[in-house]
Structure formats: C-alpha cells, structure tokens
Design a protein around this nucleic acid. Structure first.
Lengths: 339, 339
DNA sequence: CTGAAAGCGCTTACAG
DNA sequence: CTGAAAGCGCTTACAG
C-alpha cells in the first residue's frame, strides 16, 4: 500500500505542512488561491487523510462502536442497519462487532472498541453475560454507553428497550375483546429478563380481563423453533388446547406452525397464534403472523439518539430507561370474529 | 472519558516510557520482575492500549473493512457473521459498513475505510454501482480487495462468487430426472449479472436435457416479493402453467407462495417451486422451499481466506475468481415422484 | 496570509 | 537489563 501524506503535498508545493493541513480543512487562515493549489495536488495524488493520525491529535474519533449478540437473528440486522443510518446522519462512523452470544467474545469486542477509542458504545449484551466487570471499567473511563433491547442488570447506564408488558396487555385486550378467552402462552425461560417480562404481560392481561389461567397452558421451553414445536406437541397430547397461543417470539411461533401442520390442525381455523415479533418476518409466515410488533428500526434509532445525548452530555433530566412501545398487528393467524 | 497512558504508568514506577512499552508487550529486553510491576500498575489503572497510536507507528491496523449493500437481506447478515468469525480466527478485527444499495454511500464507506487504513477490504458492490473510480484508486494504493457475491466488472481484483450456472443445471437435472419436463423460470433482470447468470443456467439445463422452453414461461419482473406475486398472477391468467417454477431467489419464491395460495393452488400438489436461496430461509417457508443452496457462510469464509492470501501476498498462482459450488436441496415444495 | 514549535500515545533502532 | 532520540501523520496555539 502506498499513501501520500500532507508532507508530500507540502514538498511538491514548497510550502509548510501546516499550510497544507489548514488548506485541506478550509481554514480561514489560508488564501483562496493556496487552497485551490493544495486541493489540486491532493486530488492528483489521490490523497486520503489518515484518520488514525487525525484522531490521535483531535481526541475525537467520531466513531460509535456497536456490540451485537448475533446477526443471524434478523431482528439485530434491522436494528444495526437503522443505527448505521442514524449515525451517519449525525456524521458518525460505526464499527460493528458481533459476539455470537458469547461472553468472552463480547468482552474482547468491548476492549477492542475501547482500544480504538470510539466516542461511544451501543451494546446489546449476550444472553449469558453475567460478569459486570467490563461495564464497570467503562463507567470508570466515563465512556458513554447505551444498552439496547437487553440491558445488563446492576449497571447504571441508560437503556432503550421494548415495553413488553404493556405490549402484551394491549394485544390480549384486542384479542379478548374480539371474543376469545382460552389463551395459552409459550414462554421462554423466566431467568431471561425478556422471557420473564413477556410472561408477566400475559398474566396481567388475563387477570385484567378477568380470565382464568390454566397452568397447563403456560409452557416455558425456550426461544427456538424446536421449542415451539415441542411445546405444541406436548400441549396437543393433552387434548386440552386453547383457542389462541401467545408465543414469546417468532421463532417459537414458527415451530408451532410446523407442529400444527403436522398434526393436521389449520391456522387460524383450528387455532390462533400471536407472537412477539416484527413485521418483516411476520410477512414470511403463511398465514401471516399476528404480532406484537417490536420495530427494530425504532429501537435502533432511539438508542442512537440517546447515545448522542450522552456523548454531548446534554439533557441530564432524561429518563434512564427509554421504553419503546409495541403495536399489535392483527394479521391472518387469528380469525377476526367481529369487525 | 479518561484514559491512562504508558507515560502514567512510567511516572508511577519512575522508569522510562520505553520500559513500560516493552514490558507490556513482553519484550525479552525487560526483566521478569519489571514486567510484573508494570503489568500490576496497568491492571490497577485499567490501562487499555490506544490502538490508534499503536497503528500509527506500526503501520498495520490488523483490521479488515467490510462493505455490504444491506443487512436487511439476511443472506448478507449470515455472510458477515462468518467473516467476522473467520477474521477473528486470524486475529483480525472487522469494521462493517452498510451502503443501503446506494452508490454514494458505498463510495463514502470505502473512503472512510481507506482513511482508517484498514489492511484489506471485502466488498459486495451495490446493485446500482457503475463508476469504477473508487476501485481504481484502491488499485493505485495497492490495497488488497476481494469482491464477494457480486463483483465490479472492469476491475481486476479477485472475487468469490457462486457458480449459478452449474447450480441451476445440477438442480434441474435432478428435477427433470425425477420426471418433470414443463419447467418455467421467474428471472430477475438480465442487466443484473446475477439475473443473467441464473437465467443462462436455466436455459442450459433445459437444452442439455432436450426440453423445449416456452418463452411464455420466462418472466423477468425483478427480485422482490411483489415481483414473484405479479409474475405468478400473470402466468395464472394464461392458463398455461408449468409443473415447476424456478425462481431467481427466495423473495420471488415467497411472492409465488402468496399468489398461489390466493388463487387456491396448493404447493407442491398443484405446482412445484424451486429457488436460489439458502437453508435458513428455506425452512421458514411452508412447505419448506426446495433450493439451490447458496451457503452464505461458505461464501464469507472463502472471501476472507482469499483476502488473507492477498494481504500476505502469498500464492500468486491462485485463480482470480473463486467459484463456490451450490447444492440442490430437495425440500417439500416439489413432490418427489420417484425415490 | 504563512509557518516554526510542540504534542497526541505509541514503537523502533540504537547506545550504554 | 534500561533508556534517550527520533518518528508515525496529523492538529493546535502561537508568532510573525
């Protein structure tokens, strides 16, 4: 690789390096003519400023580090895309790292980003992260950090997450209001905060509407396709099947679709399904999945905005935890009894 | 933000900065005892080396830049994930940038990555990229670059792409060998290289097997869900419907699924579908989509390996274009007549 | 309007 | 085994 430097341009023009540096940045010090000459040579040389050197002196990298558990979960892909977009609107670069749901990788990624002296960090912790040490380091260094989607308990950085409980209550209000009452829940694990919150939402909604919960209708098997499949099969054996099942996410819903098909039950005719999810994947389902819509773009954009606030140290009185509201979207996986 | 530097450690220990620098890197010059003392203080201070400064001197950033058109296309998410994995195995960091299928963004992203002095670049050009200027700059600077999935015509960097033509022929050989002969193709645009190559594969396979192509069975409407939907509806009007349709990708296949359902045709009973795609999304389909499998991980890993070669300047005699083979996976969207 | 001096945090090559 | 000197490519503060 061969890069030209400001010094090369300076020598060519027989002026000092400072003049070149200033000319390139359109500093008012420099005459219009000199600027023109400098820029001409820069163009000719294919000069690209060395951001590394620039950052060393300016102490600002204008770069945001993103730490994400896994891109194979398309929810995160969408969230990251929106962060990248929003960041560039604020003239920030982004550096993305992927932890693959592994605490060690996550730690290493954060260390690297600190090493690169990013100006701020957007992080979604991996499912298994338990050691708060790195985050305490971040706090000590006064690094602006915002958690999104999942937060690290016991740290006091700001966060942006979905309001699952209200989302669940709102969705079930709609469904129950439409004439349903026998509603089950395929939950994730209750030791994962998302699993816990969504299940609480389910319980609140049932209680609020004066409906009884059959304990046999709550199956907590996990967050993957297979878990949804297994849960449905288990439930099917009992012959005690609800009218509608609320699944903890879209992967579990997909497992239910597969299992129902296998045993010859038709969605939505024989059973209705609603899941936490987002519109793009819901459209992939056939019939399209009714969802408690968690818009990854709203989450990503909001997280970035909060980080910008933190970096600029403005608006001290903002809430520490920003809650993004969810919207119920009634698609084709539940029959509408009334209109 | 507050960072400790090597100088801070040096002052604390009343030694020179060089000693600290060497001790931290386990340089043989330094005594075991001194190393221990230095590392203790570094730990105590929460010292994180400034990679920016380090890179300035060493001229190596150990960082690879990735330029991707859009993460909302999960194919790229998977590819990127595998690149990140493979890179970290080689002790490289990755910086991801997303162009949103926009040539201007792409140009800006590449400029930034040059500015950050990444050691190499993995790029998938946006669909509309036409100006080769940035790439010529890259060539001049002797930057190692590898194109993946899509390549920029008229530049002579190495590339890693799928062998679509052989993939199509192989798949159709299987399908035709199973007793099918009336096969149509929902193609993309022929001015997009991927669209062209896949269509050529379709034609070759038909020809090779001595089958006639009904021109009415080739519909070139685009690469999105709606295009598949529209094409199917158009074909349906003609009442001249093939037994199997090969779609240019999985999004188009999804459109066909929706349209078929709407007009009351059942997949695979009434019509068979096979598409270019990859296994994770194929599983989302119901019935699961038969695919000409393009494994994004194999692509990503291969691209990274080639880049490593380029950066290390080894193996000069390797092919300039690495072709990844595709594998036909017979899922449930086509009935198997024989076993 | 132009430039000499000092410094950002690190490393390399050399001297002792 | 330890360190003084010089430099990476840039910017900032000051002088002229």
């Amino acid at each position: 690789m061969a890069y030209y430097t400001q010094t090369d341009i300076a020598e060519k023009l027989k002026v000092s390096r400072v003049t070149v540096s200033k000319a390139l940045r359109d500093h008012p010090d420099i005459s219009r003519d000199m600027k023109r000459r400098v820029k001409e040579i820069a163009e000719e040389f294919g000069y690209t400023p060395n951001l590394i050197a620039k950052n060393l002196t300016s102490k600002k990298t204008l770069t945001i580090g993103i730490v994400v558990p896994d891109l194979e979960n398309s929810f995160f892909s969408y969230a990251v895309d929106s962060m990248v977009d929003a960041a560039s609107e604020h003239h920030y670069h982004t550096i993305l790292t992927v932890s693959r749901e592994n605490e060690q990788n996550e730690k290493y990624n954060i260390q690297s980003l600190i090493g690169m002296r990013v100006d701020g960090l957007l992080v979604c912790v991996s499912q298994r992260t338990s050691d708060p040490h790195v985050f305490e380091e971040l706090k000590k260094k006064k690094m602006p950090v915002v958690f999104f989607d999942r937060q690290m308990e016991g740290t006091d950085f700001r966060s942006v997450t979905f309001n699952d409980e209200i989302g669940a209550v709102d969705a079930l209000d709609h469904i129950i209001g439409n004439g349903y009452s026998r509603i089950g829940h395929f939950a994730g694990y209750s030791n994962v905060s998302i699993g816990r919150k969504r299940c609480e939402g389910y319980r609140s909604a049932m209680k609020k509407n004066g409906l009884e919960i059959d304990p046999a209708w709550i199956l907590a098997a996990g967050f993957e396709i297979q878990d949804g499949y297994d849960s449905f099969m288990k439930l099917y054996q009992t012959k005690n099947i609800p009218e509608v099942i609320l699944t903890v996410n879209d992967r579990v819903a997909l497992g239910v679709y597969k299992a129902a098909k296998e045993v010859g039950m038709e969605i939505p005719k024989d059973i209705g399904i609603v899941g936490f999810g987002f519109s793009e994947t819901a459209q992939m389902f056939s019939p399209t999945l009714s969802i408690i819509h968690q818009d990854p773009r709203r989450l990503g954009t909001a997280a970035l905005e909060v980080l910008i606030e933190e970096m600029q140290n403005t608006k001290q009185d903002r809430p520490r935890n920003v809650l993004i509201e969810e919207k119920f979207i009634w698609n084709n996986s539940i029959i509408k009894k009334q209109h």
